[in-house]
Nucleic acid binder design. Structure first.
Lengths: 189, 189
DNA sequence: AATAGACCAAAATGGTATTCTGGTCATTTT
DNA sequence: AAAATGACCAGAATACCATTTTGGTCTATT
């Protein structure tokens, strides 16, 4: 069996279950049925192994979001569906959940760094969609990075943060209504 | 000299300099030139004293923001000026700075609670302005709480968070442009 | 009646002995 | 010869416990 692949699977399992800090290289080696030294022939250190796993997750997340697009739907509809998918992934995927938890409770620096990188990657992903919308003439030209940032932060605020200070969650209709009237409407030609 | 006032002044000084956790009741008593027991005749415990000081600060902040309004200016202009003032206060006022720092580094629960309360108060303050705009016929009817929340979170994102993941800060023009085109434009009649 | 500060239980802190962990490398296996 | 292993090590993390600090009380004093 491919040792590199075994190691990656073991690392995914361990990081997902215990987080970055509580995952030991011995642990990974044991799950992968591999000597600890072997890991170091494929990954130069724990952090590189971690990045590798996280990057794989990000690619999967973008893939899923991509596939969410509806044929023939408007830009707003697709953008909304895609971003909601990203947020759902964020709250559903074992590893992602664990990383957010670890960032909140433990403040592990490596985890903070990785979460920042992921956020940048997501915003770039959204900015790319906006640029494509502009190129296709569906959207007005605009500062796509800035709009993507504002859009993502707004979704995070409405979907995740609102319920932290309010008893009720916002309904999806409330969210689409307010964003269609504000950010999205400013984008359309 | 009014002992209650002395205690409040001493507490303001100590909380501003050392934060909540590192401020001791002995410290406050000493600064106020008062026996420790005396504090407890005016405030039932440390947390109540703290709330009292923080509440005073919030009132001052709202006051300053209020006074920032420009006669005869449009809703957007006033709203922008007021919210920027709130954010500036947040980054300028000794006690506020200390509380944000303590929340980030120490995670003192009492501080987290208080910061949440302050955020709610600010959002309510903004929602009130929106309601008044609606009543005066300057704005379309809307869910003012929701818009106030989105607006405040957007300002925080653009003014405070952007620079954490980007080298350059956003200019005030970039911020007003994007918000005028999006959230504000949806509000106007 | 108001104030003070000695006092107390509980929590926080500091110091240190012990364990754990990432990474290496000489040895073993293939 | 090339790949894999796991004993080994230095430094980091943890657990432990003695000591100090702190919020809050309560009796003595003004």
């Amino acid at each position: 069996m491919d040792r590199r692949e075994e190691i990656i699977l073991a690392a995914e399992k361990s990081f997902s279950m215990f987080g970055y800090k509580a995952t030991t290289m011995d642990q990974v080696a044991k799950i992968a049925n591999v000597g600890k030294g072997t890991i170091y022939t494929f990954f130069s250190n724990k952090e590189e192994l971690f990045h590798s796993i996280v990057w794989k997750m990000v690619e999967e997340m973008k893939d899923i979001s991509e596939r969410t697009a509806i044929e023939g739907a408007s830009f707003q509809e697709n953008a909304h569906a895609r971003i909601m998918q990203l947020l759902k992934f964020r709250e559903t995927h074992q590893l992602f959940i664990k990383l957010i938890e670890e960032e909140k409770e433990l403040r592990t620096p490596a985890v903070g760094d990785v979460l920042t990188t992921i956020e940048k990657e997501i915003v770039n992903f959204i900015a790319g969609k906006i640029d494509r919308g502009i190129a296709k003439g569906e959207l007005k030209p605009c500062d796509s990075k800035l709009i993507a940032y504002l859009l993502f932060k707004s979704y995070l605020a409405l979907v995740n943060d609102w319920s932290k200070t309010h008893d009720d969650q916002l309904t999806e209709k409330q969210i689409t209504d307010v964003l269609n009237n504000t950010i999205f409407s400013s984008l359309l030609v």
